[in-house]
């Protein structure tokens, strides 16, 4: 945005009017562009249906890029068993839902016919969705004879 008074409020107002919640603002005065504009990075949460409308309201500014981070909670779990030969894609598909999904899988297969070991990362919209996804994973693994090692969830305070 241009480096003059009242610019930031013009961005924040439409966000606020659409019910968005500002999580953070980084105003990078030291990184002025050749057109003398100041890069501003805004992190916010907003109803996903309103993103398009917000982008239109902000079109008077140059929105250089935006990333959508939908999944805020994640958990790592270890699986041990015949992970590949019990239809891995089926396992993963059954965990995925509209608000949780497998985002990473590291597999180690030391012996061709032996058991594999994997670390699976599940990411979800919130704690509740994450818990449900983990429960689904445990149910599927029970039927496929795959052992699951869950993390300790609480941090030590």
């Amino acid at each position: 945005m241009e480096d003059k008074p009242g610019q930031l409020i013009r961005v924040l107002e439409p966000i606020s009017k659409l019910g968005g919640n500002i999580i953070g603002i980084i105003h990078q005065r030291g990184k002025k562009t050749p057109l003398n504009r100041v890069p501003v990075e805004i992190t916010l949460s907003i109803d996903s249906k309103k993103v398009q409308e917000l982008m239109e309201k902000l079109n008077q500014f140059l929105v250089r890029s935006f990333d959508e981070i939908r999944l805020l909670e994640s958990a790592n779990l270890i699986l041990i068993g015949h992970i590949i030969h019990t239809d891995l894609s089926d396992t993963v598909t059954k965990i995925d839902s509209s608000d949780a999904e497998c985002v990473e899988l590291i597999v180690s297969m030391p012996k061709l016919s032996g058991k594999s070991t994997a670390m699976l990362t599940i990411a979800a919209k919130n704690d509740d969705a994450l818990e449900k996804a983990i429960d689904r994973l445990k149910d599927i693994c029970r039927t496929k004879n795959i052992e699951v090692i869950e993390p300790i969830y609480e941090e030590f305070v």
Partner: peptide, 30 residues
Amino acid sequence: EAFKIAAEKGYTIRLIAEASKELIVEPRLV
């Protein structure tokens, strides 16, 4: 291998006994 993979993400594995709503003894990522 479970220890190797777990270590990549900063975890180890321990047998944890836990009592809250349920009583559980099982290996957990720590």
